[in-house]
Design a protein around this nucleic acid. Structure first.
Lengths: 110, 110
DNA sequence: TTTTTTACCTAAGAATATTATGTATATAAA
DNA sequence: TTTATATACATAATATTCTTAGGTAAAAAA
C-alpha cells in the first residue's frame, strides 16, 4: 500500500470485505481488484498481503482451497464461519473510524 | 489509540488538523480534545502522542512554546509555515483514503 | 526472444503504536 | 488529612504492520 500511512491497519478489513462480497478470491486477484476499485490509487503490495492472508488463515478467519489453473498454483481464500462473524465487527469498526475521522476533520458537522 | 487497528497511521494527521483548527495546543489538551470530539471512542495514548509530537517538531512541522501554568510545565505546539502547507496535503490524503475505503465497503455507490 | 503478466513466497528493516513505567504538582474525595 | 484522581510531561521494551528488496516459475504478449 503506497503513499499515505493512513492505510496502515486497514488491509485485513479490506480483504475480509472483498471475500464477503465475492465468495472466494486468490491473492493476486485481491491486489487487482483493489487497484480496480480505487482506480489505481491504492496498490496492495504482495509483501503485505501474503503474510496477512497466512495470519488470517492461522487465526481461523480464512480457509484456503488450492487449485491448479493453467499449470499454475492458485490459492483461493474464503471466510470461515468465524471469519464471517468477525467481518461484521470489522465493518462496524470501519464505519466508526470514518465517522470519528470526519468529526475531527469537519467539527462543524458533528 | 485503543480498539481498532484502523487508527494506526492517522495520529499525525489528527494532530495537525487540531492545531490548524485551534492555533496552538499542548499534548494533554490534544488527548482530551480527541476524547471529547469522538465521545470517548478514540483515546490517544501518551506513549504514542509524545514521540509523535517530538518527531513532528524535529521535522519542522511543529514548533513549541514552553510555558509555566500553575507551577506546572506546559508545551504548546503550533504548526510552522511548512506544517501548515503539509496539513493541506494530509487532509487531502485523508479525504482520498476515506473515499477509497467507502468504495471498497460500498461498491454499489462507486 | 525478450518483456510483461500471472501467481506464489520470504526476510530485513522501517514506522507506528501498545504497554508499562516514571516524575511531579494540583485538586477533589474519603 | 490522607488518599485518589486529574493534570502534564516523558521514555523503554515490545508488538504489529508495512515497505523494500529480493526469489521461483509459467503463460502470454511484444
Amino acid at each position: 500500500m503506497k503513499n499515505s500511512q493512513l492505510y496502515k491497519g486497514s488491509l485485513t478489513t479490506i480483504v475480509m470485505k472483498l471475500l464477503e462480497e465475492n465468495g472466494r478470491m486468490y491473492g493476486y486477484e485481491i491486489t487487482q481488484k483493489v487497484k480496480e476499485i480505487t482506480k489505481g490509487e491504492l496498490k496492495i503490495t504482495e509483501g503485505a498481503l501474503y503474510p496477512a492472508l497466512h495470519k488470517l488463515e492461522a487465526e481461523g478467519v480464512l480457509e484456503v482451497e488450492i487449485e491448479n489453473v493453467d499449470n499454475r498454483l492458485r490459492k483461493y481464500y474464503k471466510l470461515t464461519e468465524k471469519g464471517t462473524a468477525e467481518t461484521v465487527n470489522r465493518l462496524a469498526e470501519l464505519e466508526e473510524f470514518i465517522k470519528n475521522m470526519q468529526s475531527i476533520v469537519n467539527p462543524k458537522l458533528a
